[in-house]
């Protein structure tokens, strides 16, 4: 547990929870990022303005952080492009089929005490842990 950062994790987590509550309390919308983004991609979907505004806010954060000297490090991704593409496809298709991701099910759903979201969160946590175990410890990745 050498890299455990409980204080920044707690502060960051509280901000994420606050954002989800404010979005619902103010605008009536669920802060599920996969749902917000998918709604942007659907030509028939109405009311794109709030989706664009939310995602713009999300993407502005590293830019603003950079201006004040806390620039975000470039994420470290696998060297294999096929793995990145496969992962992106699975995340995109899976979050639509399952109706949510870490934010929509993991935070908003569990926050509403939805049994459906608790089940989804357990399933994606378990398959993610198995995937990491297989790629890191069995395939020696």
């Amino acid at each position: 547990m050498a890299n455990f950062t409980p204080v920044s994790a707690a502060i960051g987590g509280a901000l994420i929870g606050l954002s989800a509550v404010l979005l619902m309390l103010l605008t009536g919308r669920i802060a599920g990022i996969s749902g917000i983004f998918a709604g942007l991609l659907n030509i028939r979907s109405e009311d794109k303005a709030w989706r664009i505004a939310f995602i713009a806010g999300l993407m502005l954060v590293p830019v603003i952080a950079g201006w004040i000297g806390y620039g975000m490090a470039t994420p470290k991704l696998p060297a294999n492009w096929a793995v990145i593409v496969a992962a992106g496809l699975l995340v995109g298709f899976g979050t639509r089929l399952g109706g949510g991701c870490t934010s929509g099910h993991g935070i908003c759903g569990i926050g509403r005490l939805s049994v459906r979201s608790i089940a989804a969160t357990i399933v994606f946590m378990v398959t993610a842990v198995i995937t990491v175990a297989v790629t890191r410890h069995m395939l020696g990745g």
Binding site: P78, A87, L90, F93, G98
Partner: peptide
């Protein structure tokens, strides 16, 4: 099924 697929993709990268 969807949550399972998402977890695999999440775990890959």
């Amino acid at each position: 099924l969807g949550a399972g697929m998402f977890g695999v993709g999440w775990g890959l990268v």
